[in-house]
């Protein structure tokens, strides 16, 4: 029974996005991906939610600035398990063009485990969609179900 529920559950990933100091290019592309008819993430059962408590897949954009670091960590903690973290854009990976700045904290994966990286500046909506699909696979693995 619980195995069946788990299998069904990955088909309903709800997304939550955290902007950790991005130049909003990635955020605009996320909005585009999510909401415009051409890409339509709803066909994967995705939905953007307003509360971290409802989220399954968290999309993080931007180099993590000092001021956002604690807030990112706090929000990330509020997301119930099991959750999948997707880093969107080059910034959370390495700081991108902003690397070496005094105002940045650490790369995201020093702070929290990142499951999927979607590089790009900003990534194309198609790349973000692929990131979400990959996140579903990782979610399955976290639930202990084989892909298939």
């Amino acid at each position: 029974m619980s195995n069946l529920l788990n299998k069904l559950s990955v088909r309903s990933p709800w997304l939550f996005r955290i902007n950790a100091g991005s130049c909003n290019g990635c955020d605009v592309e996320l909005a585009t991906t999510a909401l415009i008819p051409r890409f339509d993430v709803e066909r994967f059962g995705c939905r953007y939610c307003g509360s971290p408590r409802h989220a399954d897949v968290v999309l993080i954009t931007g180099p993590v600035t000092l001021k956002m670091r604690d807030k990112v960590l706090k929000l990330w903690d509020e997301i119930p398990n099991p959750k999948v973290t997707v880093a969107v854009g080059i910034c959370p990976i390495s700081g991108g063009v902003f690397r070496d700045s005094y105002s940045l904290a650490e790369p995201l994966d020093h702070l929290i485990p990142v499951d999927v990286n979607v590089p790009g500046c900003p990534p194309r909506p198609q790349a973000i969609l692929e990131g979400v699909v990959l996140a579903k696979k990782i979610w399955m693995r976290k639930l202990g179900i084989e892909e298939g």
């Binding site: 180099p63 070496d100 700045s101 940045l104 904290a105 650490e106 790369p107 994966d109």
Partner: peptide, 11 residues
């Protein structure tokens, strides 16, 4: 101090 956001080779 300025460099605390330095890139790593993680990726």
């Amino acid at each position: 101090v300025m460099m605390n956001g330095a890139c790593t080779t993680d990726l």
